[in-house]
Computed example of a mutant assay.
Amino acid sequence: MSDTSSPLPAPPGPRRPGERALTALGLAAPADDPADSSPHTFPDGGTWRTEIPSVEGPEALAVVLEESARLDVPVHRVSQGSGVWMLSDAEITEMAGACAARDIELCLFTGPRGTWDTGGSTRSSSGGAGLRARGHDAFAGCVEDALRATELGVRCLLVADEGVLWTLHRLRERGPLPADTTFKVSALIGPVNPASFAVYEQLGADSVNVPSDLTLTHLTEIRRLSGAPLDLYVEAPDDLGGYVRMYEAAELIRRAAPLYLKFGLSGAPGIYPYGAHLRDAALDTARERVRRGRLVLDLLARHGADGGMSPLGSRLPGPLTRFSANPKD
């Protein structure tokens, strides 16, 4: 016998995965608590932007730009993980020009950093000091990278050390770095509680990568203390846990706005520090990261939750809370 029952009416607004079918079975999820929604937005009024990470050079960038056009994936930012020091002036200039022509923010990592220097503690079971800059020379190298990159047109720098972040912020305040330079905190030192997140904001961070295993409640707690843009891998690389949170994308936006959705890739080979010997892997994974982004955007659209994206070309974070950059204060 055919089922002649009338279809369930669609509830207004975004829907949750499987919502209508589960409601019919009496298995509906609890209603959203309005208190969990982030009250913050980007200065353009948007709640989310997109980022393609691990774009390691001009060739990988060209693949991302081509694939994003083919799949109609809007891109606000691309970031690189190997470091400014692993790129030539010509490569940086080419990447900066290609991104500027398409109104995409280019973010390059400052280095050297602990995982690649002579220190052995990062390879111990405790992980030692992680990516932080060990000693004055490594610290100075990060500053040198920042000065060189901005001279070549880069306006976003990825940082993995609190002292480097504070120093670059002071240089931005005093003039050696352009005033519109933005600083992004690496996921590898990302804060895991509201107080530490707020400290990074006050040290000069314009967006803060948090580990991808933070719960929705953790994100709400952060948003009750800070409105600084938050970066989160919707799919994390294996060395960051390999988490795949595509079905949570709408809820991540609701709880964590303003939010950069990062389209990472699990099950992929490591490519840091990048060189020509890793070319095929870098290009293949760049292409697949864009496709993963398309899957997330399609999912948001199916759930009626694809509104609120910042206009393409948006990059600045808006007013943020800072410690005084004047040591006399």
Rank of each mutant, 00 (worst) to 15 (best):
H303N: 13
R174A: 08
A305E: 11
R16K: 13
G190W: 12
L168I: 06
G46P: 10
G135E: 09
L177G: 02
H303S: 11
M1E: 14
S82R: 10
A187H: 09
R172M: 08
R279I: 04
A10P: 08
S54P: 00
D280N: 14
G128N: 05
A29M: 06
E288D: 13
D280Q: 15
F197A: 15
E105I: 00
L8N: 01
S226Q: 02
R315C: 05
L230A: 03
G97C: 11
G141S: 13
A69W: 02
A301F: 00
R223S: 12
P34T: 14
Y274D: 12
G119M: 02
A249I: 10
V199C: 12
V244G: 04
G57A: 03
V143G: 03
R279K: 06
V290W: 10
P14D: 13
R123N: 14
V210Q: 10
K184M: 02
P269K: 08
A138T: 10
G120M: 14
E105S: 04
D180C: 03
T167R: 15
A286D: 06
A257I: 06
A149N: 03
A187N: 05
V154K: 15
E19Q: 15
L165P: 11
N193R: 02
D32L: 15
T115Y: 13
S186R: 13
S324I: 07
W166V: 11
S324A: 10
E19F: 03
E235S: 04
D72L: 00
T167D: 03
A187D: 01
G264V: 08
S125K: 09
T93A: 14
L278I: 05
R15D: 06
L65T: 07
F139V: 02
D32Y: 14
G83I: 13
S266K: 12
R134N: 06
F139W: 07
P14E: 05
T181S: 01
F183H: 00
P317I: 04
L219S: 02
A69K: 04
G267M: 07
M86S: 07
R134K: 05
A28L: 04
A129L: 12
D103K: 15
R148N: 09
P39C: 05
